[in-house]
């Protein structure tokens, strides 16, 4: 089905250097690349920044585990060369909880989407935050269910057009960062897929911390949401994110609501607390009480 074009090999002489592999390939299931994501989709940047963060921290890749749910970004687990689990829709967090509690030496990260984590998985994520469970959750927020063709999600702004809100969305979105901050997360940040340097730094920061860590990453969905909401191409959306994302570290999460996809919005690290994690509390209580 896929069309193949004749390659102008002279081009290769004119341009740069041709390579067969990428430095990230060591942490990538490169036999599965190219991935399924659309041209310009922001999911790829989440993977590339995650890999860079793991590399720079020199974490043993054998001890990294990725869990994802269902959706476009749900496929992330299938592209990262760590122990990776692609679970059912919405259930990545409880699966990751089992993995982490049973084997605490693992660095367990959940990489999933706004629909997966906050609609069908909404109950799981608030409870993981409440427990201050020792997992990192990276949420690719593209305002929509991309994999099923662009329906509205709990992150879709009001009035937006999707395939199931053809006249405009009547529902208000969650403020994801505020929801998790109030549920008890130790670390809450928001970046976009164009802020790759800061996103990578944030992932690094989060990987060195304990407890429930949450990074929301706004990603363009040019094929689904963007197309129906005058957001243009992925380049247009990315430029918009670059121009309108205002860094506001430590902002009150109540003020970082994403009301309108076409106005200024706050990015940055909003919450960064040192508080006892689930595993620390478990250790403290059981070492005190259980000595019979």
């Amino acid at each position: 089905m896929s069309m193949e074009f004749d390659v102008d090999y002279e081009y290769q002489d004119r341009c740069m250097y041709m390579a067969e592999s990428h430095p990230s390939d060591e942490m990538l299931r490169d036999d599965r690349i190219p991935h399924i994501w659309c041209t310009g989709c922001g999911c790829g940047e989440i993977i590339s920044t995650y890999i860079e963060a793991v590399k720079e921290l020199d974490i043993n890749p054998d001890k990294v585990a990725i869990v994802s749910g269902i959706g476009c970004i749900g496929r992330a687990a299938g592209y990262l060369k760590f122990d990776s689990f692609h679970t059912t829709h919405g259930r990545a967090i409880p699966f990751a909880t089992g993995l982490k509690v049973a084997r605490p030496e693992l660095d367990v990260s959940v990489i999933s989407g706004d629909g997966d984590l906050f609609a069908i998985g909404g109950n799981h994520i608030i409870h993981a935050a409440r427990r201050n469970m020792d997992i990192l959750v990276i949420c690719s927020n593209n305002y929509t269910y991309g994999m099923t063709g662009g329906q509205f999600s709990p992150a879709t702004p009001i009035d937006s057009f999707t395939t199931t809100t053809p006249y405009g969305n009547c529902e208000r979105p969650f403020n994801l960062c505020d929801l998790l901050a109030s549920a008890g997360a130790a670390y809450v940040a928001r970046w976009t897929s164009i802020h790759v340097r800061r996103l990578q730094k944030s992932i690094k920061e989060a990987l060195t911390k304990k407890g429930f860590r949450f990074i929301e990453v706004l990603t363009p969905c040019p094929t689904g949401f963007g197309r129906r909401n005058k957001m243009g191409t992925a380049i247009d959306t990315s430029k918009f994110y670059q121009d309108h994302g205002k860094i506001d570290h430590g902002a009150d999460t109540r003020d970082v609501r994403l009301e309108d996809p076409l106005s200024d919005f706050s990015i940055g690290t909003f919450v960064d607390l040192d508080k006892e994690t689930y595993l620390e509390a478990k250790e403290r209580i059981f070492s005190r009480e259980v000595k019979k």
């Binding site: 390659v7 740069m16 250097y17 041709m18 390579a19 430029k239 670059q242």
Partner: peptide, 19 residues
């Protein structure tokens, strides 16, 4: 810098060009 390109992986999103 030297730029390396894995030409067959490119999906032409132009992000590298724009940014």
């Amino acid at each position: 810098g030297k730029i390396y390109l894995i030409i067959e992986r490119c999906k032409g999103c132009n992000l590298c060009i724009e940014f």
